[in-house]
């Protein structure tokens, strides 16, 4: 099969990741190791989980700005229930996930049934979730429950004396499940159809309403799962956790080659988009003299390049409006 135009963005993404990783390996000693690679996953597990949910939303032609706030709210609810009310984590975690999913489906329902732009509805969702954090508490709530600390410290050994964290494993499972969902289930294909042409999807008799609401439900679920993972990582609940995180997530999805207009892209691309962000951060920390804001500038630049690339690729295809 010849290299299709639709694969160009994802190929560019993977190549970019390899080139960046190779460049880092040549330049810095100690960069080229399995553990550095694994750390990309360990440090970005929550980004990966969120970005997977966001991929579905963007593939369906929408956007979800509430992800960062939902993460913060999840950490906050987990922390307050576990620490302040003494609930068992195994009750709290499913509850938090349910809350995230419910939050997402409410937004999805408003978007679909009242035909308001996803941008503005999820913006309201973002305000609401962030505000609810402060209703719970303005300060950080530290978590010292043994379950959380145990999960946080567990290292799963891998060959080559490297290791993964439980969070990273969760993230990998989410990615695998998402790839399956996107490509091998009706729901997944309906998401693509919806992003391709909503009107057609409707006329083809696809369940547009259900799919749309489910997409936001999924994103809400992923965000709250990312929030749970985040509590393992930070061991605290705080209303200022993950501020501006929605942008990182969207950037990861776009750099992963997904079209912001919907319908085209791969979860695998998002995976590499997250890794690219991780590599940029790693390189900057290895460099030492470069400051953290370069991450944002480089990501902004990559966004620009990818958006322009998308623009060029789509303008050539005949049937796209």
């Amino acid at each position: 099969m010849s290299l299709n135009r639709k694969y160009i963005p994802i190929v560019v993404t993977i190549l970019l990741f390899l080139v960046m990783f190779a460049a880092g390996s040549f330049r810095y000693t100690g960069f080229f190791s399995l553990q550095v690679l694994m750390n990309l996953l360990v440090d970005n597990a929550f980004l990966l989980v969120t970005a997977v949910g966001m991929s579905f939303v963007i593939l369906s032609g929408g956007i979800d700005l509430s992800v960062g706030s939902v993460i913060a709210l999840s950490t906050m609810i987990s922390a307050s229930l576990v620490q302040q009310l003494g609930w068992p984590p195994l009750v709290v975690i499913p509850l938090v996930l349910l809350m995230g999913a419910a939050f997402g489906s409410a937004m999805g329902a408003i978007i679909h049934y009242f035909k308001i732009q996803p941008f503005i509805v999820t913006l309201a969702g973002m305000f609401l979730a962030r505000g609810l954090c402060y209703v719970i508490s303005i300060d950080t709530i530290t978590i010292d429950h043994p379950f959380y600390t145990a999960v946080a410290q567990t290292k799963i050994p891998l060959p080559g004396s490297s290791f993964l964290s439980i969070s990273a494993v969760i993230a990998l499972i989410v990615v695998a499940a998402a790839i399956f969902t996107a490509h091998y289930t009706r729901f997944g294909r309906n998401v693509y159809a919806l992003g391709g042409n909503e009107q057609s999807a409707l006329l083809m008799g696809l369940p547009v309403a259900r799919t749309k609401v489910l997409v936001y439900t999924l994103s809400g679920f992923c965000s709250s799962l990312a929030g749970v993972v985040f509590t393992f990582y930070m061991l605290s609940g705080y209303g200022l956790h993950a501020v501006g995180f929605e942008l990182d997530t969207i950037a990861a999805v776009v750099i992963g080659g997904t079209l912001l207009t919907g319908g085209v892209g791969y979860v695998l691309g998002t995976f590499f988009g997250v890794l690219i962000q991780g590599v940029i951060q790693t390189i900057i920390s290895f460099e030492g003299t470069l400051s953290s804001w370069w991450t944002k500038i480089v990501i902004g630049l990559l966004l620009f390049v990818f958006i322009l690339l998308q623009r060029v690729l789509t303008s050539g295809s005949p049937a796209r409006k």
Partner: peptide, 16 residues
């Protein structure tokens, strides 16, 4: 920070 909650409802109400 709770202003955010109020803002959320204002945004939603106006858009609805």
């Amino acid at each position: 920070e709770i202003t955010l909650v109020v803002k959320a409802f204002v945004v939603l109400a106006v858009c609805l």
